[in-house]
Simulated assay, not measured.
Amino acid sequence: MRQGPRARVRESGDRGSLLVRDVTIDLRIFTEPQQGATYDDLLRVARAAEDLGFGGFFRSDHYLHMSGDGGSGPTDAWTTLAGLARDTSTIRLGTLVTSATFRLPGPLAVQVAGVDQMSGGRVELGLGAGWFEQEHRAYGIPFPALGERFDRLEEQLAVITGLWSTPPGETFSHQGSHYPVVDSPALAKPVQDGGVPIIVGGAGKRRTPALAARYAAEFNAAFQSASASGELFERVRAACAAIGRDGDAPVYSAAQVVVLGEDAATLRRRSAAIGREVDELRTNGLAGSADEIVDRIGAFAEVGASRLYLQVLDLSDLDHLEEIAHRVQTQL
């Protein structure tokens, strides 16, 4: 995997001075196509992200817009990722995150393994319990209570990883209340050793850290402050310790909306294009000049994040991606 940019992290030294050390930060582009984006829109952004050296191109898995009119409508996450697997060549691809309520675990395991094969081993699967009730109603998807959704997520993780890890020629069975599996040939297989990396995220205090410790190659803290992200990371480390897993084994990541503007007019224009206010974005995201964004990234690195998903909401502004690459990554 390509190395990401390097973030400046300030730490206390002798006599209270501030020192700077380098920490590798993998920057990835994260999109929300349910707001209205065609496959061609996504392909343009994915290819630009690949050409500019970002570590990954990820998309949400939603079927209903959350503001505006939804434009041309949603695209299916794994359908578009299959296309991107063939239409890109080096960048990593995945979901942040697929909802466990949308798909049965057996077919999802086959689907993701197939996309992994199509990409030459560049796919990652973010999987969550689901939360957006309105989109379930809009597309006729059952939406059980929160406890059952977590039960289903836990069982899906067990089935998917069990299918992928079953040795060739053997069968897999799972005695579950929601997704019983009997004598599955456990095909198809991903091409990545150990299967497709699983991403688990969320702010839950008990079940989320436990699931991340057991199943996840990566834990993601989405749209949290740096300090809150650090607290979530520590919960996962504690959950790892409880089952005898090295707390440093998972990758720790964060997701933040990004709006770069070297002058006030550009910052206002780009904020308005996504329906947000500059002051709010400075508080709840990465907004401002390249220097400001680099410093905010450093704050996440200080609490243990080694990967950052930059949520880019205006998919028509490819100049924005180029400026982030040239002005932020070059500083890092």
Rank of each mutant, 00 (worst) to 15 (best):
R10D: 00
E11F: 14
D14Y: 04
G16M: 10
L18S: 08
D22H: 04
T24H: 11
I29R: 13
G36Y: 13
T38R: 08
T38G: 02
D41K: 06
L42S: 09
R44E: 10
A48R: 12
F54S: 10
F58Q: 05
R59A: 11
D61M: 03
S67M: 09
A77E: 07
A77H: 09
T90E: 13
A100Q: 13
V110D: 15
A113E: 09
V115C: 04
S119D: 07
G121A: 12
L127C: 09
G128S: 14
A129G: 11
L146P: 00
G147M: 07
F150D: 05
R152F: 10
E155W: 02
L157R: 13
E170Y: 00
F172T: 01
F172A: 04
F172V: 02
S177G: 02
A188Y: 02
D193Q: 14
V196E: 10
G204Q: 15
K205H: 14
P209C: 08
P209A: 09
L211K: 06
E218T: 06
F219L: 10
S225E: 02
A241F: 02
I243W: 04
A249F: 05
G261V: 03
D263C: 05
A264G: 02
E292G: 08
A299Q: 01
V312G: 12
L313M: 07
D317K: 05
